[in-house]
Design a protein around this nucleic acid. Structure first.
Lengths: 192, 192, 192, 192
DNA sequence: TATGAATGAGCGTTCATTCAT
DNA sequence: CATGAATGAACGCTCATTCAT
């Protein structure tokens, strides 16, 4: 292929394409098994072109994680009037973001080594919600809120992977399932 | 330079040492960030010695995952007389294995790309248990068993990481927490 | 994106600016540590613009060296009526050129791999001068003229760097210092 | 070529060979035009072998400069009983080291960007010597000692390059030439 | 006259693996 | 049983240069 500018070439398009391919590959193969050569091959450009738009492999990956993190923080910082609906609303919003950005979600939630930051923040938010819930029902004998929050996070992570990102359940359905698991339980099920 | 067998050297010991150091490093740094050179340095042998006992980096890592998988399968295949106590027993046994083998657990549960095999099997087991539970209480209106099973797995994975492997909670405590979360809910908590 | 000729742009101005910035950068950082991207950034134009005016990085650097060489040759080829004043005159003229063109001097004298051409010519000129001097004083027992010429060149190179280009001494002062070192020695200093 | 150890291979020999070839290439082509690939080709090994013995291209080059610097400092720190013979002795020792280590000298004196350290030290030493000399001949009207020292350094650098490293003059001869230039001058030569 | 966009060619470095001893 | 010495195969990245506009 000749050197120089391609016919009809467009920088922003190339950058976007590279970004997309990178997201795709990072999310399916992880950081270490995604080579710059893979990314540029998928985007049908050469390696130097990658460095025209991104500082380094590391910084691109980091940017992706940062974006995911920021998006998530924005969702979590939204305020709702009624405390009662918080749980359902927050979880559904989260899941809706996940299904709208499945590959970024995989990166930010499962691949990045900084994912613990996001998870910590999620747990914090859940603790808040559960505390509010608890205040509403003061005589309730409840589990350690931290434990329930972590458990809830685990459930979300797992269900997202198993049902949401595989398109077997919608965000709304899963949010309701989670609500039901964590808040609606008939006495009959109690076995001891 | 001196070469050949070290005085007091012992094949089985070297192999064991290499294995241990590998588990240590893999579990804390992951597969790609653990180099053969790191492992042999930790075990105070040279690189060729590694290949005396293991076929390759990949095969060693795989062996470790296989062992974890086998151990877990054995635990899951144990039979219990009373269906009623199954949940608590199985979960506690799992957690007890995890805390007894924390580094292998990290590898087999969080680092290995084959961890989905273990997770699938766990989910299957949980489905069985929950189905048995459901037969006992036929009129119970219950969630999709698959969803609850996956959720339960998520909870276990998360709580293991957050409280068990950090020695903040015992296997027994966490098993009871999980039981409580998934099966004991006071009507008071029901919000809708 | 806007492309094409800038308003108020002017080819000769761009070329001159690029040249100046190149001189600046080459002289301070050397050939290999000066990148085209540095030069055009300093001149606030884009890389293709550089190639509008110069064939290549190498050819520009060469041009700069050629100019320095030519300037120097012109100075060296000037004729003086009185042989007696040649040394002082030639050296002072050289040093005056150096201080008037410090960056080009650094390139032509210290950075260019072709600097030996200039140096050879300088040595030749010094030999001529010294020979003339010697003819005036036939009974003088003198050193090998080639050795003294090379030594003189070395002195000039060093003093230029240390005192002239750092503005600690003027061309005139240094020329006199050199004259004094090479031609005026009191018997008292003779130690053997 | 097959992988693994070569027949009759010997690490210390390989390292030495690489070092020698590196010195050779660095001294003739400079830092930037000497590629690791050149060095290993000359030593008939592959690139990873280079990194078996040296940390990086940069660190090897630096080591070479450091060694030159240290050697030189040792020479300069030697003490002599009689001040009168200092000049001749020091200069001759220097030149003797240069001719014994011509390639290292080229690196340490002309190629390294840290060569100014060595040169500064040399100038300092010369200043000391010249001051001692001056004390012996108190009524002598002398030039600025700093200027003469720098000039002397320049002369040495130049003559080393032109006559010593080309094997046209011996260390002893050049030392005497320098002594003669800087300290023995007949009144007859004085022209003004 | 000038730019936006792209590439060929190469460089320094790393790492799992292997041969000869 | 164990080591010293070496390499194949990549990988991330840079830089001078060039084409299309």
């Amino acid at each position: 292929m000749a050197r120089g500018r391609k016919v009809n070439s467009n920088g922003e398009k190339s950058k976007q394409l590279l970004r997309e391919k990178a997201i795709e590959l990072f999310s399916t193969n992880g950081y270490y098994q995604t080579k710059i050569s893979d990314i540029v091959k998928a985007a049908q450009v050469t390696q130097p072109t990658f460095y025209l738009y991104f500082e380094s492999k590391d910084s691109l990956f980091n940017d992706l994680h940062q974006q995911f993190q920021q998006d998530l923080f924005n969702i979590l910082d939204e305020q709702f009037d009624q405390q009662d609906i918080q749980f359902l609303k927050v979880v559904e919003n989260l899941l809706q973001y996940f299904i709208a950005n499945p590959m970024l979600t995989k990166i930010g939630l499962y691949q990045s080594e900084e994912s613990y930051l996001v998870k910590d923040k999620l747990v914090k938010k859940f603790e808040e919600i559960l505390e509010g819930q608890a205040r509403n029902y003061p005589n309730q004998q409840h589990n350690d809120i931290q434990v329930v929050s972590q458990s809830l996070l685990g459930s979300i992570l797992r269900l997202t992977n198993a049902f949401l990102l595989t398109n077997q359940k919608s965000a709304k359905e899963l949010a309701e399932d989670l609500f039901s698991i964590y808040f609606k339980k008939e006495p009959a099920l109690v076995t001891s």
